[in-house]
Amino acid sequence: MYAFEYQNPSTAAAAIGSAKGDARFLAGGQSLVQAMKLRLSQTGTLVDLSGIAELKGISVAGSNVIIGAMTRHSEVARSAEVKQAIPALADLAGGIGDQMVRNQGTLGGSIANADPAACYPAAILGLGATIKASVGQKERAITGDSFFTGLFETTLAPGELITSVEFPVPDCAAYVKFKQPASRFALVGVFVAKFGSTVRVAVTGAKSSVFRATDIEAALSKSFTPEAAAAVKVSANGMNGDMHGSAEYRAAMVSVMAGRAVARALG
């Protein structure tokens, strides 16, 4: 690991103030620390967010669940409020990596990293969440649909800090992933959520970035059944292909996982 200056501010404002030049924020570090060890990532200044109380916590306001960016996956998975309001989200958090990763990894860290096979991005897109982020004195709300822009890329500006995420509570939802057994990342993961007559279907692991499967959404808006999702033939265009599965395999798995997610959502 290359050397860096370490800072551990106690407020979000101080963290944003510390983030000059090529500084990086350290959330749970479950991807960043490993990337730094491998020298895939380096920084002049590492700003540790773990001492910032205002970035942690879970609350329910109206029809939204609001989760602080530094909330650990295991806290979301075990939260009575999340289990009650959006059980699919607690379930997703409880299936990320392994228990040690879940005890350290955070919501904000996961979505800022934008790993193409990570689980949380599927919930951001599938639920149409809103990401609150700050840079300088400016705070903004970013729609889930516009947040992820490519492979490990987001719309965040340099030095911009995610503070919290607002998840709208759906009528019903579920997340099902077909795991890559060694990494536990999604080979293909599908998040399905129903809001009245609108259905959102988000897919992770299959392309360079999380995306919405609009053909499956259209089919499920007409008939919210596992069969309707599984019957949609998804194009292999733009799908990842590697030693674990071809592009055609992943495309086929999107429909299969979507069908299973609908079955689980219907309980």
Binding site: Y6, L26, G29, Q30, V33, Q99, M100, V101, N103, Q104
Partner: peptide
């Protein structure tokens, strides 16, 4: 439980 190789 956490992995001591994954944190500073």
């Amino acid at each position: 439980a956490v992995k001591a190789c994954s944190m500073l």
